[in-house]
Amino acid sequence: MSTTSVLVTDPARELPLAKRRRPRTAGDWLLAVPGLALLLIAMIAPLIWFLWDSIADIGTSADIFANVIETVSDIIILDAAYYTAATSLVVTLICVVLAYPMAAALTLARGMFFNLLIGAIIVPYFTSTIVRTYAWMVLLGRGGIINQAMLDLGAIDAPMQLLYTHGAVILGMTYVLLPYMVLTIFTAMKAIDPRLLQAAQSMGSPGWYTFLRVYAPLTMPGVMSGSIIVFILSTGFFVTPALMGGKDDVMIGNLIQSEVEINLNWGLASIISIFALVFILALYWTYYRIANIGALIDQEDSR
């Protein structure tokens, strides 16, 4: 032992806390069986049936292969994929920027005020997407409230084209998806031990430094989870782009919907769906590698 040390015990003798957790047993996995079975029967099996049945319909494997190649190299599909990814990314980023302070305000609110805030965030969430989207159309239309107010104030001479634009799609989607982000980040913020912030303060850290070095990093798992949820939900949108977008606002979801509903071409719909699924899984995998979700989850556990 070092001579400068005043400590008499050897810390290595103690077991690290993390290793004291009970190892998982077969019984633990058995508990998951009913849930997994339900998932398999209710969600996965019909999906596989749909994909298999409709793709097999195309013809021989060579036909299918040719069809797949044609589809994934189709400029329309690639265009929609790009538009979907870009829009989803922008929507996710805007959601983070808006949701972060909202979630923080929520952690500070108490009693009646908290109920009001959480209500304001959740109630629109219970309203159907179509109703919420129509509400925005009333606001943004050429004869809508915003244009009317601007005209009355003399700020503009002719109504602005607010609806049926990229911006309108992003606005509408952000509005629908914001609650997911707020609630996910709120949960992460709520889990932060307030004494960590006091500790930082006691060590002389000013507010901004505590936020940057302690608060923000600890909320990152929540921000990442929220982003993944919002991004994945975004990529599946088709009602909002159809109602609020212009002629160029075509997402992958719109293509699939039109193949399923209008052209009844389910083979093509399936190929596009698988294309989108692979795209999202690839994205999720990348995220997993970068952020190492497992480690973050472990960290949450050990507290």
Binding site: M43, I44, G236, I256, V260, L277, I297
Partner: peptide, 19 residues
Amino acid sequence: MTTILKAPAYGFSRRSALV
């Protein structure tokens, strides 16, 4: 969190419900 992420991404659930 992982449960949500493992659920079928995209709008597939709609079609499953349809079937």
